[in-house]
Design a protein around this nucleic acid. Structure first.
Lengths: 256, 256
DNA sequence: CGAACTTTTGACCCCATTCAAAGTAGGTGG
DNA sequence: CCACCTACTTTGAATGGGGTCAAAAGTTCG
């Protein structure tokens, strides 16, 4: 077997610690937070637009999308969150600013009381600073997402999304950058890319015909990652993953 | 006369204080920050893509755009910043994550040393928390921007942009929501909206023909704000301006 | 008073949407 | 285990919104 996926809370704490050095006491305090475990099936809203703020979510398993909704019901997904992510951490600082959150597949989350996290941030300044930095990085990713939507063609957008997600999934121990499972519908891909489901299908077909990516079922195989990154004009550095740059030491045990 | 535009640094401190109650000492410390005044003419980059981090910018006068740049040179503006805004405050927490910044018109900024702001945030926890919250609100606006780019037609995008900017300009004391000056080129509007300059022109013409907005020179007159907001599906609450919604109980007593 | 930059308009093209329908899982109950 | 239902995927044909190319008419400013 490959490396086991790290426990989501560990992943979260690790990322925080990388942003601002955390003492052992602070790390333990984060690990010992108690929250409510919640299961959501695909397509249900974890936080509906305009809902009251009642907790901060840690993704434990599955896939969640942050989204904006329009009055006609259409949605634009603005960020994808994997196990170990906390999509709405910034709501600790600004309870009013709560993003809407949707489970894209069957998803398990833990919901922590806002006050507990606020108390932690106040008690350990390093934690507060790490929370702030965490939100800042989130905003960087969001900015790329916006650039993607504004200025690129359908194929480029799709390529960029696949590049981003392949690296992040690999980083979360959920696959490898050239072979991963992304079990979302084409409808949902459309909501991420600002495209109609029909055109998502055609776009995937185009990539398949170029022999760059094949999506069978919801299993993605990237045959030519370099070419994919090139069409996407993708620069991984903004994700700030360690695995991102060298990429040489991407272990690949004999499997499949 | 209408109200005078408040001094930009005051506007910034005021906004911070609204996010997290600041003591007089902390407010004074913010006011007394010393930085380098810089003038930039229209179109020049205040921070070029990939440039080294060397300061945090307060917009004093003019208009700046945060942007993403692609390898072919095209740009997508992801946020507009008015006098009193600090576009890159989050770089205090994550120096690596520095947004590119462009002066859209002749613009004056003050550049503060990152360390000075970091020291302030560490010394006054309330300031740190306010900085964090400031970034969180910025991200909320950015999320709307992304939704705008992903799912709306050219006319809707333009309408939304004009709604947002008219309210923010009015809030900054630089005009009224139905009559304001936005002295940017149609090329730059295109970079904001993900459109070509030619189509920006046609879009403005469409709004003019519907008698909703007329843009003569770079002076904008909104004849029917309600109708504009309706076509944009615009909801002002995300901006968290006092003028926008009731928000009556938003104020807090200044603690020492 | 000319040079460079904007704005405006026209004609044509192409990418993505829309509408429609057939094919393909996946899941449930008989 | 199969019949059936529902949701998702795939493909075709027609439409349209926005892009591209080109040129003329303002502006601004040295």
């Amino acid at each position: 077997m490959y490396k086991d996926p790290p426990a989501p809370i560990d992943r979260f704490v690790l990322r925080l610690a990388k942003l601002s050095p955390l003492g052992k006491e602070a790390r333990d305090a984060l690990q010992n937070l108690r929250g409510k475990v919640i299961q959501a099936s695909a397509g249900t809203d974890l936080v509906s637009p305009g809902a009251r703020a009642d907790g901060i979510h840690l993704i434990v398993e599955g896939l969640a999308g942050r989204f904006a909704q329009f009055s006609d019901g259409r949605r634009q997904i603005t960020a994808i969150h994997l196990p170990g992510d906390v999509p709405d951490l910034h709501a600790v600082a600004v309870p009013i600013a709560r993003p809407s959150l949707q489970a894209l597949i069957t998803t398990t989350v833990i919901k922590y009381p806002v006050e507990d996290l606020a108390a932690l941030a106040r008690r350990y300044p390093a934690v507060g600073e790490a929370f702030w930095a965490y939100g800042a990085l989130d905003a960087v990713v969001l900015e790329r997402w916006a650039g993607n939507l504004g200025r690129r063609s359908a194929v480029q957008r799709m390529a960029h999304l696949l590049c981003e997600l392949s690296l992040r999934l690999a980083d979360a121990g959920r696959g490898q950058r050239h072979a991963f499972s992304l079990p979302v519908t084409q409808q949902q891909l459309g909501d991420m890319l600002g495209l109609t489901p029909v055109h998502v299908n055609r776009t995937l077909k185009a990539l398949r015909d170029q022999n760059v990516v094949t999506a069978k079922g919801r299993q993605f195989l990237v045959h030519d990652w370099e070419s994919l990154a090139a069409t996407a004009d993708f620069d991984p550095s903004y994700l700030l993953l360690e695995a991102a740059e060298p990429a040489a030491n991407q272990r690949r045990p004999a499997a499949a």
